[in-house]
Design a binder for these strands. Structure first.
Length: 481
RNA sequence: GGCCCCAUAGUCUAGCGGUUAGGACGUCGGCCUCUCACGCCGAAAACAAGGGUUCAAGUCCCUUUGGGGUCACCA
């Protein structure tokens, strides 16, 4: 393959900027730079039910904070624009039309209800799961007229009934699955939007992506993508599936068990270089016992044969140690700058001073009064005895805290109005007295019985710190007796 | 459960047929020191199991076990 190297990171704007996105972005970036190629950022926002309005910008900001930049993307443009899938609908509709014409795809009119029943039945009979190809035999002309009459439908891929489908993964060699294990994947949803499978193949082809570097979780659907390239008559890119970052229990890293937002690491005072360096240690090694290295050095020596494939556990202790090394290397001037760009700045002070001005009599009181605004994790031991709700077991109190987190996670943004609204609904659902519920939140988020107004405080602390403190409190309570 | 991926200390990893299995985090001990931290020195700690192949296996092959992923009109 002599085409110029083009790789992409394709995050979905469905929540907070994910550490896995940074991880995969890093390796895409490094490989692109190593090969003198281009690194593209493409937003995969085809799921309108899950899309969050503030998510896309947070992804840009978070990746830039890491020190990664892209040659083409929604915000910087480029020769293959647009880079937002929601703005590329016509491409996917055209592609689906092509498949229909070629007889490689077909319209499916099955209702969600029918599919749900089918799934239940298959579970009961313990037969292989998957679509039963009910609509595959409808004559194309009939299907076309039903569609023209406005009947709701999707477009599915006509997967071969059997036969081995294989592809080569650069890190793992040939991976084979039999077509009979693969069901007829939905390509175009009834709302006219493509699924990931269609969109990524169409876009990777149109954007002339040469190497698809993505997480291991995609391995099992790669055969579908190969089938799609084949159906279109397009050359498939090379596939490189990275290992998955893991929780301490080895499962795929997840927000219930581990901080996954890049912003969390930023907010607790991890330096971007340390963060990127640490991600570079996950599954990859520099060689020669070297653990501390810059992005430029990583690019310089980069090679895929230094990858190991066991899923690496994201170890906060080691990240913290590495961060310490970076901090100690900083000059005092640089450290001052780092602190200022972190939280010791006018912007943050202006945010929190409205909460403390009435509470101080002399300037010297501001630091002690706001200490928890500048901390990551708190030591809750001193206030643990206070963290009770009458008639409720500590473990249940902890669970309730988790429930509150779930509730605000489900909402856009992170402002005091939303936080209070959610808290009041939550309190009511629990049947607790407001003063007990709110004191609990106060103790968990500030470690103190007295604080500025709770929801203002949470808003200033930010989502990451707030979430982490509430989860930590829940964990402590779960262990309490 | 079917299919697929993976497998060196608690964790991140080096190793690419012949090593006393190396480094790092963490843990423990000591030194340094006005305290703490840093730093330095040291210790415990690993090739999942069983079969092959080979003069020789952590390294190659097979099986088992274990872990993970995936089975959506989510990505």
């Amino acid at each position: 393959m002599s085409r110029p190297v083009r790789v992409r990171i394709a995050p979905s704007p469905t929540g907070d900027p994910h550490v896995g996105t940074a991880y995969i972005a890093l390796f895409n970036y490094v490989f692109a730079k190593k090969m003198g190629g281009k690194f593209v950022l493409r937003i995969e926002d085809t799921d309108q039910t899950r899309a969050r309005s503030d998510s896309e910008q947070m992804i840009f900001d978070a990746l830039r904070w890491c020190g990664l930049s892209w040659d083409e993307g929604p915000d910087v443009g480029g020769p293959y624009a647009p880079y937002r899938q929601s703005e590329r609908s016509q491409h996917y509709r055209d592609a689906a039309g092509t498949l229909l014409e070629k007889g490689e795809g077909y319209r499916c009119f099955c209702t969600e209800d029918r599919l749900a029943k089918l799934r239940l039945q298959q579970q009961a009979e313990k037969t292989t799961l998957g679509y039963d190809r009910h609509c595959r035999t409808i004559a194309p002309a009939e299907a076309a007229s039903r569609a023209a009459a406005g009947e709701s439908h999707v477009v599915r891929l006509k997967v071969p009934v059997s036969g081995p489908i294989e592809f080569t993964d650069k890190l793992r060699g040939t991976i084979t699955r039999d077509a009979k294990e693969i069901d007829d994947q939905v390509l175009l949803k009834s709302d006219g939007m493509p699924t990931y499978h269609l969109a990524n193949v169409v876009d990777d082809h149109l954007m002339e992506i040469t190497h698809v570097i993505r997480a291991e979780e995609w391995i099992s659907s790669t055969q579908k993508h190969v089938l799609l390239y084949r159906a279109f008559g397009w050359e498939a890119p090379e596939f490189i599936h990275m290992p998955l970052l893991r929780n301490t229990d080895k499962s795929k890293i997840s927000k219930r068990k581990h901080p996954v937002s890049i912003n969390y690491y930023r907010d607790i005072g991890i330096l971007p270089h340390a963060f990127l360096n640490f991600l570079g240690l996950m599954g990859w090694s520099f060689g020669g016992d070297r653990e501390k290295f810059t992005l430029a050095e990583m690019i310089d020596v980069f090679s895929w044969d230094r990858m190991s494939l066991g899923g690496p556990v994201f170890d906060l202790d080691k990240l913290t140690w590495l961060n310490e090394q970076y901090i100690h290397d900083l000059s005092y001037e640089q450290l001052a700058d780092a602190l200022i760009s972190w939280r010791l700045n006018r912007e943050y002070l202006v945010k929190l001073l409205p909460l403390v001005r009435e509470r101080i009599k002399k300037l010297d009181e501001v630091i002690p009064a706001t200490e928890y605004f500048f901390s990551g994790d708190l030591d809750l031991t001193p206030v643990l005895p206070e963290m009770t709700v009458p008639e409720v077991a500590p473990a249940a109190v902890g669970k309730a805290l988790l429930d509150y987190v779930e509730r605000f996670e489900a909402r856009d943004g992170f402002d005091k109005t939303m936080l209070e609204e959610v808290a009041r609904q939550w309190t009511e659902a629990l049947g607790w007295k407001t003063k007990h519920a709110f004191m609990l939140l106060r103790l968990a988020t500030t470690g103190r019985k007295a604080s500025p107004p709770l929801f203002d405080t949470m808003a200033v602390l930010g989502k990451e710190i707030t979430r982490r403190r509430l989860r930590s409190a829940a964990a402590v309570l779960a262990k309490a007796k």
